[in-house]
Computed example of a mutant assay.
Amino acid sequence: MKNIAIFASGSGTNAENIIRYFTDSEVVKVPLVLSNNRKVGVHERVNKLGIPSFVFSREEFVEGRAVLDKLAEYAIDFIVLAGFMNKISDALLQAFPSKIINIHPALLPKHGGKGMYGMHVHEAVVADGDTESGITIHYINENYDEGDIIFQATCPVAPTDTPEDVATKVHALEYAHYPQVIEKLLR
Rank of each mutant, 00 (worst) to 15 (best):
K39V: 09
A91G: 02
K39I: 11
A91P: 01
V80N: 06
V33E: 06
M85Y: 11
H104I: 13
M85C: 10
V40Q: 13
K39D: 12
V33D: 00
F56N: 13
G50S: 10
I103G: 12
V40W: 09
S53D: 09
L81I: 00
H104V: 10
A106M: 13
A106V: 05
V55L: 09
V55S: 14
I79V: 14
F56I: 08
I103D: 06
N36R: 08
A95G: 05
D90Y: 03
N47G: 05
A106L: 06
P97D: 13
A72C: 02
L107A: 00
L34N: 04
N36G: 10
L93H: 08
S89Q: 08
G50C: 11
L107S: 03
G41M: 08
F54E: 15
G64N: 07
F54C: 13
A75F: 03
P105S: 04
I51W: 01
F61P: 01
D69M: 02
I79C: 03
P105L: 03
Q94K: 15
I79F: 01
D69I: 03
R58E: 07
I51N: 02
L92S: 13
L92D: 09
L71N: 07
N47P: 01
E63S: 10
S35W: 04
I103H: 00
K70P: 00
R38Y: 15
Y74P: 04
I103M: 09
L34K: 01
A82M: 09
A82E: 11
S53L: 15
F84I: 05
K48P: 05
A82P: 04
V67S: 08
N47A: 02
N102V: 01
S35C: 09
F56Q: 10
K39E: 14
G50D: 08
M85P: 04
V46A: 05
L81R: 05
A95M: 08
P97G: 03
A82H: 06
P97V: 08
E59T: 12
P52G: 07
G64E: 08
L107K: 06
P109N: 05
A72Q: 12
E63W: 03
H104W: 00
V80E: 14
L68D: 03
A82T: 12
R65N: 13
F56A: 13
N47C: 02
I76Q: 04
S35G: 04
V67L: 10
F56E: 10
S53Y: 02
V67G: 04
M85G: 00
A106Q: 09
H43M: 07
I51V: 15
G50L: 01
K48Q: 15
L34A: 14
V55T: 15
L49S: 13
G64P: 07
V33H: 13
I101E: 07
V40G: 00
S35F: 11
L93Y: 05
S53W: 11
A72P: 00
D69H: 04
